[in-house]
Each structure stands twice: as C-alpha cells, then as structure tokens.
Design a binder for these strands. Structure first.
Length: 781
DNA sequence: CAGTGAGCGAGCTTCCGCTTGACTT
C-alpha cells in the first residue's frame, strides 16, 4: 500500500499527477465537492449562528467511502484541491468527512499541472486556511438563504416552481432590460455619402464624415459635386500595429467558439471536457490568462521552429476580470507541437481554436501602414476621407485573428482595410460615382449566450464552472428563450450621381432578423419586475461585487463570517416577510383599451398557462352567469408589446372552416403553429398558409394528404384495437400503443409482430424502470 | 402538443459552485 494519499478535484488531473509522483503516492479524486447543505429547511440554523448541516449526497457516497478507506491506510494524506475559496472548502470537507488527523494531513496547492510545480508544492505543505473556508461558508450560506427564501415568495406571488438567486436573477434582469431598450429605441435615418474615384484596380472609396438627415441636403451635396474638381488636400501615412489577445479563459473560449464556430456555451464546454479528458488541453474551467513557465518555453520553441524567430515575442498577460481566483492556468494545448489532434470534427475545430489562440498569444505584433487621404471639393468646404491599410508584417495574424461582436453597418462598409492606389498631394481625382444612401441607427444588440457570459463576467457574477449551467437554468425556468425571429422589410432611399446625372431609387432591406439570440419571456419580465420592486438590493448589478468584497475580508481574517451573514440576513428576511404579507400577486396586467364593438375592456396578463388576453371583466358575485372571453398569446408575442388590434386578431381562431365526413374541421394555433383538427386527428398547416384564409376544400385536401403520408409510414395495423399500430419513425420502427410509443427490439421483425406481442412489449416498457440520468427520471414523475 | 384562465388545499418546487457520468424518443 502506498504511503501517501494525494487527493485532487478532477480524476483526469489525478491520472496525470500520479505519473509524476511514482509508487509512493496514490493519487485520487474527490470529483469536486463531496458534501453539501441538506436540502431541507433546517440546513441552516439561523438562531444558532447560522450553524450548517451538511450531508454526503447519494452520488458521492461511493467516492467518500473509498477515500475513507485509503486515508485510513495511508501514512500521510495530501489535500491538493484547487487554490481558491471552493478548493479550500473541499479540503476542509475532506478533512472533516474522512476523519483525518492534523498530524498526518498536509494541504498543498499548485496552479499548474507540471512536474516542477507539483514537486515544489510537496516541498511546501501548509495547514488548511480556515479563514478561506469561512469565506466559502459565507458564500454558500448566503446563496442558500437568498435562493430558498426568495423562490417561495415567487411561488406565492407569481407562479409555483419558479426560482430566484443571486446569479440567475441578475442574468434575467440583463436580458429583460436590454429588450426594453430595444423596444423603446427610435431609429434615426440619415444619408451617408460615399464617393468612388478612379476605375478598375485603381478605384477606391472615400466617405464624408457628416451624414445628412434631410434628403434635400444630401441631394444638394450631390448636385454641388456635379462638375466640381476633386483634389488630394493632404496625405498622411503612419505605422499602426495590432497585438494578439490573451490565451483563452472559460468565458473567452465560450465567446469565440460561439462567434467562430457557432457553438452554444454548453456545447463548447462538453467538447472541451472531452479534449481535457483525452489529455489534449489543460483544464477548461478557469478564469486565468496565465501560462506556466514550461508552457511558455514550449510555445517559444514551437513558434521559432515553425515560423522563425521574428514571429516570436514572449508575453505575460494579467487578468482583467474582477473576481478572478486564478486556481488554474489559461486554457492551452498540453503539447504545443500538436497543431491538430485526432477526434471528431467538433473536437478538432475547438482544439485548433485553442491551439491558435495560445500560440498567437506568444507571437509578435502585426504591423500595418495606415494611409489617410483628405480630398477637397472645389464647390464645397467639406472634405472626403479615404482610408487605406497595408500589412507590412503579419506577426501573430499568421495563425489567429480574434473576431468581435459588432456587426457591420452595411456590407460595403469595409473600406477601412482597403488598399489605396499611389496618391500624391495636390493630385486631381476623377469622380466615377457618388452615392447618398439612407442608413438607420441601430438599437443595442440582443445578447447571445456567449455575450451574456461576457457581461456576467464583467460584473463579477458567476464562475467558470457555472456560466453554462446558469444559461440553461434561466431557459429551463422559462424566463428566457433562445430563438430565431424574422425581421421586417424596410425601405431606404439611394441617390446616385453618375455622369453628371442624379438617379433616385428606393430599395428594400431586411432588418431586425435574429438567430440564436436571447429574448425574455413574459414570465421572465414579470418575475424581474417583481424582484426589482421588492428586492432591489439582491438583483442590483453590484450586489455580488459588494458581497465578494466582504468575503475577501473574511478570507483575510478581518471579519467574522457569521457577523457578515447576520448583518445581511436581518433586513433581507424582514423584506421577505413583508413582501409575503403585503405584496399583490404579480400578473403583469396591462389594459389594452376597449373592444370596438362590445365596448368591454381588453387586457393582457400572465395566467396559469402563460400569457393571455381577456375581453370583459372577471365574473362578479352579482353576476355569476357572466363569462369573459380568453385567448392565449402566440409565440413571439408579449404582453408588453402586443397592441389592441393584434390581441383582437387572436379571437378569430379557432374557427370552423367546414365539414368533412360528417365532422367539423377547425383551424387553430397550437404550441407548434397553426393546425386543422378533424375527428380528433391533427394536421399542421404548411408554412405560408394564413390560418384565417383556409378554405373548406383546402382543409379537406390537407387532411387527405396527411392520411396518405400516414399510410406510407404504416407497417402493420390490428383488428383487435385500431389505436395500436406498427409504424416507421425517424428512429426506426416503433409501436404506437394508444398514446404510448414503444421501441421495437432489434431481434424482432416489425412485419411479423402480433397484437399480443405488441401488448407485451408495451406492458414491459411501462413497467421497466426508466434508466438514465436522475434528472430525467425525476422530471418524468 | 393541441381547447384551460375563480379559489380551495395537499404536497411539490428552489440556491451556487465544485466535479463527471450516462442518458432520452
């Protein structure tokens, strides 16, 4: 048996370190935290100085018992969890749970997984830092108190099963507030003047700095330019340079993978996890931009051999994000010599991105020569400006160019990087064409998952390990949806001056179309407004930063954690009590106006099943017969922005469109779009068909088409029970047993199945314990 | 999947942060 047991957080890390340490060391992993607060109310004893009750969760029992056994046998136990607040707490939980003894327990830390770093750590053991542990407990207790006291307020005042928390509620707030900024944004139009001088390869663009809000002014400008002389007034050339970005952290990796590869943040993390486990990259949950000495040396070697000395420039980066704890290195390839790896397509692409970014971070600047020409007009005092840029040395751009979030105004706006022909001061220029194009100011951009992560990181909210789960949570709770939305077409005017003649035309463009952007739902907006109204302090963008400062004081031994939590809890709990008793139920109700024919009030609000419109007052005690009319809002509509007319439209459906085989056909809109219902069968309407315009003939045709398609899918039907069928589905043949779908085992021929066999299979399926993730099994219940 | 929307009440939901695993129709 090994003399030493060393415990780290991650099993992949354990494997690597075991290789460094030799046979005297057994290296094991705790798989993160091994204990957590119990789920129940008594997890924190408030009257007793916030004393916590912890438990080992079921899925950690095995790990803990194995570690316990090994610890008993070892001479020395080395606690090597990460060097940050959570890591220190993990060490303490291990110490406590495994019944370790001070005398033979050593706490060590390292922030890079290299042999020298580990050896140095072992030479310098210390004791558990209880101040740091206390800071973690304060963090944990605060989050539990906030989450488990706020959520029930929402259950009572908004809707059951909702949630609120220090991190998620601010994330939702960011999305809701941005949407409102966009809604109230007033776009302003102005004409932008662009001139083209010269012909063919010598042609280049010049722009006017001013924009004209009135068409007359733009037209006057073009008019003045007819027959005018254009002269190069000044010519300035200066060198510029661009430096590489720091190697990836979790947040920057998520952003760049989203922009360049189109991955969601959770997809990026899953792929990165695989790369980490197969030893291709360092740890992927990190807030550090630091590279180890060995990594720096190996990158230097790779760059000089692959590209030459002039491409190498050693750089050390400093983290900018506020709450960074820097327990790990930046994300980088384990071996810089591997430009590519084996793996599936997504793994290869992500690895390549990580490799390029890390290599580029140690390369020299790219150098440019930027030329600015000012062009005078004989008939006007304004000058046109032409910019050109020539790359003199590519430097790090040889391997990597970071992208950014900003979209271009128009496709032809790329004149910044253009190349100018040789020009000289005083030179006369030949105008080829000049245009005045109407352009519109743009509202702030909606957030993507990745840009939300960026924002959260800037605010110091959340941690590398929680960005992806937080984004999932706010979507799972229905506060936010990630969607595609169609844009609207918009007309814009273009004036073109060519050959002393001004042509006017109107063009159309599509604007406001979004893909993969985060939109708040009505419930998200109502919950947010409720929290902002009653718990301003908690959903304040600076709340986390404020408490982090106090956690730091606890970690430095300057403040008692129970004191800090006590000071926070007293007023917070009073707010909770007060809100529970006095606040109105939040429905986001909004009056839209009066129904033009009925003269009754029309309003929208959130109900048990989502947002809906109501015509008329609620039934009162004096008039129990009276019933208001209801209609659900459709996808993409919101109680905040819907108009009276749009609301009244909703009452035109469902609509009876005719009769077929003695049964009525109805058109309605369901969760998946418009459909026809007939004799308890459903047919989706094809795209582009307006549900209000469906005719009887069209409906019959669609029903018959659907029947034909279903018949093609049908493998076998049974006389015993018409609701039982064998069908060919997307995932292969299956049995439709009433409402239950059952997969057919591979060893059975679907054509040969008897009714009895189907029944048996369906029976077995409904009885079989649902395998798979606990989350899934729980949801089913 | 798909038409509902009052109010009652039982019993349920919920936080953040550290890890991986083993899954859906």
């Amino acid at each position: 048996m090994a003399k030493n047991l060393l415990i780290v957080e991650s099993p992949a890390k354990a494997k690597t370190i075991e290789g460094y340490l030799g046979k005297d060391f057994t290296v094991k992993s705790s798989y993160g935290h091994i204990r957590d607060l119990v789920k129940s109310e008594d997890a924190i004893d408030i009257a007793n100085n916030f004393k916590q009750t912890y438990e080992v969760p079921a899925d950690k029992k095995q790990v803990v018992s194995e570690l316990k056994k090994l610890a008993k046998e070892a001479e020395t136990v080395w606690l090597a969890s990460d060097e940050d607040r959570e890591g220190e707490a993990i060490s303490w939980h291990l110490f406590d749970t495994l019944n370790l003894k001070d005398a033979n327990t050593k706490r060590i830390v390292f922030h890079e997984i290299t042999k020298p770093a580990i050896m140095a750590a072992i030479e310098n053991p210390r004791k558990i830092n209880y101040n740091l542990v206390n800071a973690q407990q304060a963090r944990r207790v605060l989050d539990r108190l906030v989450g488990f006291e706020l959520s029930p307020v929402l259950w009572k005042k908004v809707k059951p099963s909702l949630s609120a928390g220090r991190v998620q509620s601010v994330a939702v707030r960011i999305i809701v507030e941005r949407e409102r900024e966009i809604n109230k944004f007033q776009s302003e139009a102005a004409f932008k003047i662009v001139a083209i001088f010269g012909k063919g390869r010598q042609a280049f663009k010049a722009e006017l700095a001013e924009r004209y809000s009135k068409q007359e002014d733009a037209e006057k400008f073009l008019q003045d330019c007819i027959g005018a002389d254009f002269t190069v007034n000044s010519l300035e050339t200066r060198p510029t340079k661009r430096s590489p970005a720091a190697p990836f952290t979790t947040s920057t990796l998520q952003q760049e993978a989203s922009r360049k590869l189109g991955y969601s943040v959770s997809r990026t993390m899953q792929i990165a996890q695989r790369l980490y486990e197969s030893g291709h990259i360092t740890y992927m949950r990190t807030d550090s931009v630091n590279l180890s000495e060995t990594a720096l040396a190996s990158a230097a070697n790779e760059i000089t051999t692959a590209y030459g000395n002039q491409y190498y420039q050693q750089r050390k980066y400093k983290t900018k994000s506020a709450g960074a704890q820097e327990a790990h290195e930046a994300i980088r390839p384990t071996y810089f010599a591997n430009h590519t790896i084996d793996g599936d397509g997504s793994e290869k692409r992500l690895y390549e991105l990580i490799w390029k970014r890390a290599i580029a971070s140690q390369m020299s600047e790219a150098q440019f020569e930027k030329t600015t020409a000012k062009i005078g007009i004989s008939t006007r005092k304004e000058e046109l400006t032409a910019n050109g840029e020539v790359m003199k040395f590519d430097g790090f751009l040889k391997v990597y160019l970071e992208s950014n979030d900003e979209e271009e105004d128009t496709p032809q706006d790329d004149s910044d990087n253009a190349i100018l022909p040789p020009l000289s001061k005083g030179q006369r220029l030949e105008l080829e064409e000049m245009s005045a194009t109407e352009r519109f100011s743009r509202p702030p951009a909606r957030y993507t998952e990745a840009s939300l992560v960026k924002k959260l990181e800037e605010l110091g909210i959340g941690r590398p390990s929680t960005y992806a789960p937080t984004i999932s949570t706010i979507q799972n709770r229905g506060y936010v949806v990630k969607e595609e939305r169609e844009g609207k077409t918009r007309k814009f005017r273009v004036l073109t001056l060519k050959d002393a003649n001004i042509a006017k035309e109107e063009r159309t463009e599509n604007t406001g179309a979004e893909r993969g952007k985060l939109f708040p739902t009505d419930i998200g907006a109502v919950v947010n407004d409720f929290l902002v109204q009653h718990f301003k302090g908690i959903v304040d963008f600076n709340f986390t930063a404020k408490v982090e400062k106090q956690f730091d004081e606890i970690a430095a031994g300057l403040e008692e954690w129970t004191n800090m939590i006590g000071n926070f809890y007293k007023p917070f709990h009073a707010d909770v009590e007060n809100t529970m008793e006095t606040a109105d139920k939040a429905t986001g109700i909004r009056e839209l106006g009066i129904h033009p024919e009925k003269g009754e009030k029309v309003s929208v609000r959130i109900g048990r099943y989502g947002p809906f419109v109501q015509i008329g007052e609620n039934a009162s005690d004096d008039n129990k017969e009276y019933k208001p009319q209801y209609a659900s809002l459709r996808n993409g509509q919101s109680i905040e922005t819907i108009t009276l007319d749009e609301a009244l439209e909703l009452f035109k459906l469902p609509k009876v469109v005719g009769e077929f085989e003695g049964k009525t056909m109805k058109v309605a809109i369901g969760r998946f779009g418009p459909y026809i219902s007939h004799n308890s069968a459903f047919v989706s309407l094809p795209k582009g068909v307006d549900p209000l315009d469906v005719t009887e003939e069209q409906a019959i045709e669609l029903i018959q088409e659907k029947r034909k398609k279903d018949a093609e899918k049908l493998i076998k039907a049974f006389d015993e029970d018409p609701t039982v069928k064998v069908l060919n589905g997307r995932f292969g043949p299956y049995i439709e047993f009433g409402k239950q779908n059952v997969k057919i085992p591979k060893d059975k021929d679907p054509k040969e199945l008897t009714y009895e066999e189907c029944k048996a299979l369906a029976d077995a399926d409904s009885k079989a314990p649902k395998k798979g993730g606990k989350k899934f099994a729980k949801k089913k219940k």
